[in-house]
């Protein structure tokens, strides 16, 4: 964090009180202007953002694992390169987001500790396994597709650093969904075995993707405050509907079936209607009983712990060579 101008001379002249600061904050948000890191902000706003950005960052880096699984086994060199670049992007996106979170006065090491200790979470979608190559396609098409629907509105979030990180992320992610669609398209029009592999993956990922948008609006009472603060722009149900409306015609283009017998076009509303979501499964996964909860966190903790001696070594080296490093900074 930058340090504040140490001279108190100016501050004495104009000392705004809390009410004036709060009023200025509300006015800034209402005017669609951005709140910046060192502005006064309500403590609850700060905490909401830390929680949201940190868990978003955790989702990016845990989300590397299910697909990262297939880097060594990708079936062509072109696919291997694309997947490597994609999983690498996710690490980059995690970094952009941790960087945004740190502007709120927390540090990344602590956020990672909270993730490792289970005191902060990540999206439960990444607790599902990727047993086949088609899962890489389904994650790209459905999971990244749902993520894009969720993320695009955050590019207009009231908190400047988060909004800017999301602009960058959305720009970079535009290829992620497409490569997933392309994988499924090749499989769907390939051999019967490949087609079956694609259908099986879509069957497994469709409902969890819909659950990514969160419980129905009437079960999410506190969303209102995030909406007022312009951290969240659309309700869970609005975003879910938007996703379904996009995905259904894409599934038809893929020649794959979505596993919902109740799925139908409703001309009157101009939307696709879909069946009831089984929230029991969602809450089980959330509670830690998904197929891969333990695996994902263990993998992450192992990498972190096995890396400790490396981080310490670099710190020790930097301390020994502080004079030289200082000279480089000054140059």
């Amino acid at each position: 964090m930058p340090v504040t101008d140490p001279s108190p001379a100016l501050q004495a002249a104009v000392e705004p009180d809390e009410a004036a600061l709060a009023e200025r904050f509300e006015r800034t948000v209402a005017a669609e202007e951005r709140i910046e890191p060192r502005d006064w902000m309500p403590e609850a706003y700060r905490k909401t953002l830390i929680r949201q950005i940190a868990q978003h960052a955790h989702s990016e880096i845990i989300g590397m694992q299910p697909e990262g699984n297939w880097i060594t086994r990708a079936p062509s060199l072109r696919r291997k390169a694309i997947l490597l670049a994609k999983v690498q992007d996710e690490a980059g996106h995690g970094l952009y987001l941790y960087s945004a979170a740190e502007t709120l006065g927390v540090d990344r090491a602590e956020l990672l500790d909270l993730l490792h200790a289970g005191r902060q979470k990540y999206s439960s979608i990444f607790n599902y396994p990727t047993p086949t190559w088609a899962d890489v396609g389904a994650i790209g098409w459905l999971v990244d597709g749902a993520a894009i629907v969720n993320q695009v509105p955050i590019t207009r979030c009231s908190y400047g650093p988060y909004a800017r990180a999301m602009v960058r992320i959305c720009k970079e992610e535009s290829f992620h969904q497409r490569q997933g669609f392309e994988i499924l398209h090749h499989l769907s029009s390939g051999t019967p075995e490949q087609h079956a592999m694609a259908q099986d993956a879509v069957d497994r990922w469709w409902w969890p993707s819909l659950m990514m948008f969160g419980p129905p609006d009437d079960a999410s009472p506190n969303s209102a405050r995030s909406m007022a603060w312009k951290i969240k722009r659309f309700s869970n149900d609005e975003l879910r509907q938007r996703f379904v409306d996009m995905a259904v015609p894409q599934a038809e283009a893929l020649g794959l079936t979505l596993p919902d017998p109740e799925l139908r076009w409703d001309a009157e509303s101009g939307h696709y209607r879909f069946g009831a979501i089984d929230w029991t499964e969602f809450h089980e996964v959330l509670r830690g009983n998904g197929p891969c909860n333990a695996l994902r966190v263990e993998h992450r903790v192992r990498a972190h712990e096995e890396g400790a001696w490396v981080r310490e070594a670099a710190d020790a080296y930097a301390a020994k060579h502080a004079a030289r490093a200082g000279a480089e900074v000054a140059a």
Binding site: T72, L84, V87, L95, A303
Partner: peptide, 18 residues
């Protein structure tokens, strides 16, 4: 490529992937 997600620091994951 197999090291991605296993690096000692996130920045290093990105470097090894490059």
């Amino acid at each position: 490529g197999a090291q991605l997600t296993r690096a000692p620091q996130l920045e290093e994951d990105v470097a090894l992937a490059n």
